[in-house]
């Protein structure tokens, strides 16, 4: 079990809402989508999230695939929030909560017992209490943050155009000038790549245990 894959933290939060307020919440999301990016400007500027989603599960819409599967009889509908962001919840809760308290409150506003994003301790514990840990979490680029992916895209696109714009008959000096200009235009995309900072000493311990398990090839046989 780990919510950490390289530079990304995988968060799952499941919270109840009354079934009719779930419909209100859906309407809010609809407005957010229609007016994009108006309500998400803070989140975009914060630039910590690769991908995130909010999914309303109506109390009647838990998948039932077979008659043998008991039918769910729930009082509440539920909201499943899933996020892939850089840094851990403990490290970045203050950044989320301070940058976009209004946005967070809007997205969880109808959830039962949601405490609002400020004061922080209650919000922190609300999310933690309703968080479900990942059993398996996969990240295609453990060495890259969302910022790295986006700046890599810009840099590569620009580098392709730059390479294509060069001609054999330009002078070395003209090349040099163009190269300097290229570096200046892309100076914000040239951060070094590397490992994620350690998200916590607990995670470090888990990584260590996994290494030991692998080294000793003593992963317990599974039961089935």
């Amino acid at each position: 079990m780990s919510n950490v894959a390289g530079k990304a933290y995988g968060m799952n939060v499941l919270t109840p809402l009354r079934w009719w307020t779930a419909l209100w919440q859906k309407l809010i999301f609809w407005v957010v989508v229609k007016t994009f990016p108006y309500f998400l400007k803070g989140l975009l500027t914060l630039s910590l999230i690769h991908y995130a989603r909010w999914t309303i599960i109506n109390r009647w819409s838990f998948p039932r695939l077979d008659k043998t599967q008991p039918k769910e009889t729930l009082t509440y509908s539920y909201m499943l929030f899933e996020s892939n962001f850089n840094g851990s919840w403990d490290q970045y809760i203050d950044s989320f909560s301070f940058a976009i308290p209004g946005g967070l409150d809007m997205f969880w506003r109808w959830n039962i017992k949601y405490p609002k994003s400020i004061p922080l301790h209650d919000f922190y514990h609300y999310i933690r209490f309703n968080q479900i840990e990942c059993d398996h979490y996969y990240n295609a680029y453990p060495l890259a943050s969302a910022n790295d992916v986006k700046s890599a895209k810009r840099l590569t696109g620009n580098l392709r155009s730059f390479a294509d714009s060069l001609t054999d008959n330009m002078t070395d000096e003209a090349f040099m000038d163009a190269y300097r200009q290229f570096l200046a235009d892309n100076q914000h995309a040239l951060g070094s790549m590397g490992d994620s900072p350690l998200m916590s000493t607990s995670h470090q311990l888990v990584q260590h245990h996994k290494q030991v398990n692998t080294a000793h090839e003593k992963q317990p046989e599974e039961e089935a």
């Binding site: 919440q25 859906k26 999301f29 609809w30 957010v32 989508v33 998400l40 989140l43 975009l44 630039s47 910590l48 999230i49 690769h50 991908y51 995130a52 989603r53 909010w54 999914t55 309303i56 599960i57 819409s61 998948p63 499943l80 997205f107 969302a146 992916v149 986006k150 895209k153």
Partner: peptide
């Protein structure tokens, strides 16, 4: 399940 809001902060 149909996602209500999908946010892409990357590419």
């Amino acid at each position: 399940l149909t996602t209500s809001l999908f946010f892409n902060g990357s590419t």
